Amino acid sequence: MSFIRTTEQSSHYDHLEKMSINELLTNINTEDNSVPIAVKKSIPQIEILVTQIVDKLKNGGRLFYMGAGTSGRLGIVDASECPPTFGVSHDLVIGLIAGGDTAIRSAVEFAEDDTNQGWKDLEAYHISENDVVIGIAASGTTPYVIGALQQCNQHNIITGCITCNQGSPLATTARFPIVVTVGPEFVTGSSRMKAGTAQKLVLNMISTSTMIQLGRVKGNKMVDMQLSNNKLVDRGTRMIMEELDINREKAAYLLKNHGSVRNAIDNYERTK
């Protein structure tokens, strides 16, 4: 079925090379301001998909992101931030990219055109009906992603997507599509710009709301974050000071003794 690729339509701006630096920055910013508005319109779609994800993860399932190029990298970034931010295992949210780890830094020619490799990559993780797979592709036409989701559908695995083209093959393949229509890019076809920003915002919403629903936030604090550097240790100490109304020395002791903000608070409250 044919559809209009709005992400490929000509930019609203021309003669970019003749613009001053200030004009370039101002016009890019003007276009960027439209992205959150477009994302807001997709909240009902995001809510439906997050509801599915939470249900599966509460019952032992996993969340997979799949994409190529910028879309794949954005999925990997979001997945990689979940363990340090929310203290979950590294195999709860998994990001896959066409071309494998090499493609995180360098383009792997034609990797995204393989309709079978995406499913093979999922099979390596023993994908099952307990899991959720989200395909990410601004164009909505990436064979690596579409082929994987088609196989998932056949195996009764929940599928979602994040795309920026209404009616695209990806949007019609995913059972729970999220379509954020951002329109033409400032540089024609450069979907790392508005489309990439939209995808990042949606990924933030998906992972953060899911983790909150899974109980990984207390109040508004990341009480399960990994204490992997001095900045985070200091942040954790301050969280405990604020929550328990105790001094820094005692808070630091509790954090070191119990290994996480949550454990420190819970154990302190139990011994009061």
Rank of each mutant, 00 (worst) to 15 (best):
G99D: 02
G67W: 03
G219D: 09
R175F: 03
K58G: 14
V133N: 00
M193G: 00
V108E: 01
N267K: 13
S260T: 14
I127W: 01
L96V: 06
P143R: 06
I97Q: 11
L255S: 14
L49W: 02
E123S: 11
T102Y: 08
E129S: 13
G60H: 10
S80Q: 08
Y253L: 15
D234Y: 06
I43L: 10
S191T: 12
N116E: 13
R262H: 12
N257W: 07
R175I: 06
Y13H: 14
Y268E: 09
S10R: 15
L255W: 08
K41C: 00
A79W: 02
I240Q: 09
M66V: 04
N130C: 14
T115L: 08
I157F: 11
G135P: 11
Q9F: 00
G160F: 04
E17V: 08
G259T: 10
F186D: 00
L227T: 02
Q117K: 07
G60T: 01
I48T: 15
V39I: 14
K120V: 11
A107P: 04
H15V: 04
H12W: 07
T102I: 06
R262P: 00
Q154H: 14
T142S: 14
L74R: 06
I134T: 12
L201D: 04
E47A: 14
A98P: 09
G118M: 12
M205W: 01
I158A: 09
M19R: 13
M241D: 11
D245R: 14
Q117W: 02
P169V: 05
A174L: 11
A107S: 07
S10W: 10
T271R: 12
Q213I: 01
N29Y: 04
Y65P: 03
L122D: 05
L16M: 11
G183A: 01
K58I: 15
G196N: 00
K218W: 07
Y144D: 05
A107E: 03
R5V: 01
S11V: 00
G167E: 00
A111I: 03
I134G: 13
K40H: 02
T142I: 11
L227E: 09
T208Q: 10
T6R: 15
S11F: 00
V54N: 07
I97R: 12
I46E: 06
K40Q: 07
I178H: 02
I127S: 03
M66H: 01
K58N: 15
D266Q: 12
D266G: 00
L25S: 13
K256A: 14
I4Q: 10
L16V: 07
V50D: 04
G189P: 03
L227N: 08
E123Q: 15
R62I: 14
F176S: 10
I28T: 01
H15M: 05
N220F: 11
M205E: 09
Q9T: 13
M205I: 08
P184D: 03
E242S: 15
H90F: 12
